[in-house]
């Protein structure tokens, strides 16, 4: 698949979210509910695929909203809202990895997880193979690919979120996708043989 720099998904959510942020700053609880409902699934899916753990994904999603709410009075709609919210999300994700590295007994690190593969269900087996592949690649490659595929963000937006150059982002996405393709083809080969 050729990665173009024109994301097909419009960021209509973003503009509305900026308005919601301004409403939240003036103490509007309904706006907060709307904002949470709008962004909880994208954030949860990003964390879920990054951590391979529903509970941790939910916990980090909640932390994003708490941070967002704490910073609402200082919020200035400069960049796109998706860039803003995923910058917070990525920082929290990195903090989580740091926390886990300080506590090596915590075996929920994606690199430690070997997902159970349910035999007899090729869909689950395939997901298991991709899950292991994603857990095995470096964080920056995984995050760049997830932001590109899940949110269809442009390279420049991903670069802004990850504080990196666009060239680096392109390379990370390319490498992550190559790894995913490789593990998929290995999975198919082994499945075909058995």
């Amino acid at each position: 698949m050729v990665e173009s720099d024109n994301p097909s998904k419009p960021d209509a959510d973003g503009d509305e979210s900026q308005t919601l942020m301004l409403r939240i700053a003036s103490g509007d609880d309904v706006a907060l509910t709307l904002l949470i409902n709008r962004w909880k699934n994208p954030l949860f899916r990003f964390f879920d695929r990054s951590l391979n753990n529903h509970a941790d994904a939910e916990d980090l999603t909640q932390k994003v909203f708490i941070k967002l709410h704490a910073a609402v009075s200082r919020y200035k709609p400069k960049a796109k809202f998706s860039t803003y919210i995923f910058t917070i999300a990525r920082r929290l994700l990195l903090d989580e990895f740091k926390r886990r590295s300080r506590r090596p007994e915590d075996l929920t690190d994606p690199l430690d997880i070997k997902s159970p593969i349910v035999h007899g269900n090729s869909r689950n087996e395939l997901e298991g193979a991709l899950e292991q592949c994603l857990a095995g690649i470096p964080e920056n490659q995984r995050t760049a690919l997830l932001l590109r595929v899940q949110r269809e963000l442009s390279y420049s937006e991903i670069a802004e979120i990850m504080s990196a150059s666009q060239a680096a982002v392109k390379t990370w996405i390319y490498r992550a996708r190559e790894e995913a393709r490789k593990s998929l083809s290995e999975f198919r080969k082994s499945n075909h043989e058995t």
């Binding site: 909880k40 699934n41 949860f44 899916r45 879920d48 695929r49 529903h54 939910e58 690919l145 595929v149």
Partner: peptide, 9 residues
Amino acid sequence: YLRDESASP
């Protein structure tokens, strides 16, 4: 797989 569209909190 990456989109994880069935997942939600």
